[in-house]
Structures are given as C-alpha cells and as structure tokens.
C-alpha cells in the first residue's frame, strides 16, 4: 500500500535555511544539506525547499544548492519559489530535485503547467496553492500570499490538474501559523475534486492534526515547518502515532 507522507518544509534564502532549525543540535542550522540529512535520519518521506529570495541572480545559487542536496541525501525533494520558465524547471530537475513547485507564475500563465508537464511529465510538476477563506469560497493568493486573485481555489485546483499538474501543495492561509490544525474543509473539498495527490499545509500543531488531515481531509501527504524545526514534534513521533492509529506510513 502507498504510504501517507510526512514532509518537512524549509525556507531558503541566498542558499541558506532561514528560520534555522533549532532542535537538531546542528553546528550550522542554516546549512540546507545538514538540515536535510537530519530530517532524512528522522524518517521524513520527502522535503520541500522554498526559495524565498527568488531573484534572477539567485537562480544559479539555487541550482548549485539543489546539486549539493541531491549529492548528499538519497530522498525525494521538491523545490519551489519564483520558478517562471521551462529553463528554470529543467535546470532544477537536472540538478537533482524530484519535483518543482509552481505558484504565482502558474496562476498568471496556466500554460506553464501544461508545457512543463508535457516536457518533463506530470509527476514532477507540483502546483502550490495558497488559499484563504472569503465568504463562501476560498480565494487564491499569489506573490507569497500578498496578492488576492479573485480565483476560487477549488476551481483552480481542478484546472491545474486538468492542465497536467501531478500534485497540489495546498496551503491554508487561515490556518498557517495557528497550530490549531489543518484546514480540513478546504483539504476535503480539494481532495474530493481532483484525482492527483494533495499535500496539505498550514496549521499542524499536534499529533491528532496529522491523523485528521489524512482521515477527514483525504490528504496524501502532510507538510509542516516550524513544528518540526523547533522540535515540538519529530517526524518519527508523528509517524509512530499515525501507525498506531492505523494510518499507513513508512516506518
């Protein structure tokens, strides 16, 4: 059986991990390779690296970093942040990332999804959606959650899947940072509408939250950042807990 995945997410700026990982006792908490190795040892199923600098001059730094990570850890990882062209995607995949994550540019130019999927295969194209509840729908925000688009997140997810996205990375802006649990309604709404895997993100604070997002939200993977970085929970703890409650995970 396919396992549910637990995915730590790391923010990268100028080739360094920001909001450094506190609990691992690393000498250099900003070193992406060191952090990746530590999560590898904890049994993380994948990693997501989000480049929050995302300027043109940083592209090369990012590609070099991806090469370094791929040469040092033997687990799948996704790279996102500011990816706007087919060439960016090719460079990052060839450098060793398993998948790339598209967000703002995919909203602006949805054909980027289809041309990338055609070129590299759907399996490596993740579409990241940042959604916020507005009255009776969830609105898509771009530019790191700063710009509203008026687009309905559920409709966008369906369209992205139709265009060839292989996975949705769904972040609830309402829940992000609250530690009150994932947005189960939003997650359920999307997972019931698309036939591609969905990674739920935003709001994880305790063990039950992971159980709920898999069982009630229908998520295929759960992502968390600070919860893991600050050592409140370890990936291993989460997986052991899920296993005990009958969720299939890789131990």
């Amino acid at each position: 059986m396919l396992s549910k995945r637990i995915i730590p997410c790391l923010d990268i700026k100028d080739g360094r991990v920001v909001k450094g990982v506190k609990f691992l006792g690393l000498r250099d908490a900003g070193d992406p390779v060191g952090v990746a190795k530590a999560y590898d040892a904890q049994g993380a199923d994948e990693l997501v690296f989000l480049d929050i600098t995302a300027s043109i001059e940083n592209r090369k730094t990012l590609v070099t970093l991806v090469e370094k990570i791929a040469g040092n850890i033997f687990m799948p990882f996704t790279v996102g942040g500011g990816i706007s062209e087919i060439d960016d995607i090719r460079n990052i995949l060839n450098a060793g990332a398993e998948k790339v994550s598209l967000n703002t540019q995919a909203v602006k130019f949805p054909e980027l999804i289809s041309s990338a999927a055609k070129r590299f295969g759907s399996q490596c194209i993740v579409v990241a959606i940042d959604a916020k509840k507005q009255g009776d729908f969830w609105e898509v925000f771009v530019n790191g959650g700063r710009t509203p688009t008026g687009i309905d997140a559920v409709i966008w997810a369906e369209k992205a899947a139709r265009l060839g996205a292989g996975e949705i990375l769904l972040t609830s802006m309402d829940c992000d940072g609250t530690k009150d649990g994932y947005d189960l309604k939003l997650t359920k709404e999307i997972t019931s509408k698309v036939n591609i895997p969905v990674i739920a993100s935003g709001g994880a604070g305790k063990l039950e939250d992971f159980y709920d997002v898999f069982t009630q939200g229908g998520a295929d993977a759960a992502l968390a950042a600070s919860l893991f970085h600050y050592g409140k929970l370890s990936v291993k703890q989460v997986k052991e807990y899920l296993n005990k409650r009958g969720v299939i995970v890789r131990l």
Partner: peptide
C-alpha cells in the same frame, strides 16, 4: 487507468 481507483501519478513510498 483511472478505473483502478487510485490517484495518478503514483507518488510516494510503496512496498
């Protein structure tokens, strides 16, 4: 095939 009732792509850890 979608008729197998699984999401496509097959993505993640399997036995």
């Amino acid at each position: 095939s979608a008729k197998f009732g699984q999401k496509i792509p097959h993505m993640g850890w399997n036995n």
